[in-house]
């Protein structure tokens, strides 16, 4: 009788309605969000390399930041953009914001509204930062920019002639940039920046990608890519490095760390699912062997 009961529980667990699994995941994410549970992640070597590259560039260096993502991956990519921009402007670098994705220019606008205008009001448009926006062409666009930057970017986002901005005067090709940072979530993205700009143009490329893309980019590090942030965890690691070096950002640069709270609890729930799923599988297998 007891054996039968045990079997029934195993069978039930194995065939549990997936909607209960959905419910548990939702709870695992909602509770830490409501309780504001945050966690910080020490910086890994690959993220630290990107941080060090920006840190080591002399003030006034030109950094091209490409927004190659859309609303679907904002929770992962936007904290990266925020952290990198804070760091670059803190170091007095000049930043150029562009996009390979049509949705990217909305994200760069969000960065401008929430970070640049609020935290760096003294930085001058066209001198310290510029919004170039989106252009069609995917990897073809990178190929164009490598030989003729102003062939595509004839104006800035608002339609003003590109040569009317002091920071654009000396830009002829992508080779005039000291660093390219591709923040992406698919094609075209960081990979295409390496293939079509970094390698042929010998330009340092760094990046930030969604966690899905991150494992695929490891073969490029460190020879073809100076460093990169993988997913929300990568963004949180960059925040950690930034706050460690510049403690004044401790309160502001926390988006990734805050959203890492739900991430941690959801991971634990999924780990529990995997363990439970395997226990039921092993018990079921043992039972089948026994009755064979």
């Amino acid at each position: 009788m007891a054996e039968e009961e045990k079997l029934t529980i195993i069978e039930r667990l194995g065939a549990v309605d997936r909607r209960y699994v959905f419910l548990l995941i939702a709870i695992a994410v909602i509770i830490p969000l409501v309780l504001h549970y945050a966690t910080s992640i020490p910086t890994s070597e690959i993220v630290q390399s990107l941080f060090d590259k920006i840190e080591s560039l002399p003030g006034g260096s030109r950094i091209l930041i490409s927004f190659d993502y859309g609303p679907s991956t904002v929770p992962e990519n936007q904290p990266m953009a925020n952290a990198v921009t804070r760091h670059a402007l803190e170091k007095s670098h000049r930043i150029y914001l562009m996009a390979l994705w049509p949705t990217g220019s909305r994200q760069s606008q969000q960065l401008i509204d929430e970070i640049i205008k609020v935290e760096f009001p003294d930085k001058v448009y066209g001198v310290d930062w510029i919004h170039l926006g989106y252009k069609a062409g995917n990897q073809g666009l990178i190929n164009t920019l490598l030989s003729d930057f102003k062939g595509m970017y004839t104006t800035d986002m608002s339609g003003k002639p590109i040569d009317s901005f002091p920071m654009m005067k000396d830009i002829r090709t992508l080779r005039d940039f000291d660093l390219i940072i591709g923040l992406g979530s698919g094609f075209p993205g960081t990979k295409e920046w390496i293939q079509f700009a970094g390698d042929p143009g010998d330009i340092p490329v760094g990046g930030g990608t969604t966690a899905v893309m991150a494992p695929l980019l490891y073969p490029y590090y460190p020879k073809q890519m100076v460093g990169f942030m993988g997913g929300l965890q990568g963004a949180a690691e960059y925040e950690y490095a930034l706050v460690k070096k510049y403690p004044k950002y401790a309160k502001r640069s926390r988006i990734a760390s805050t959203t890492m709270g739900p991430q941690v609890t959801a991971h634990l729930v999924i780990v529990a699912f995997i363990i439970l799923g395997n226990i039921t599988y092993l018990l079921e297998r043992r039972r089948k062997r026994k009755y064979r």
Partner: peptide, 28 residues
């Protein structure tokens, strides 16, 4: 419209990946 629809459409995958972890991720 566009922003919430695209973001939510992709976030649905979290539920399915969790369900897959439970049902299919076995040390066979």
């Amino acid at each position: 419209t566009f922003q919430p629809l695209q973001a939510t459409m992709f976030s649905l995958l979290a539920f399915f990946v969790a369900s897959a972890s439970y049902r299919a991720f076995r040390a066979k």
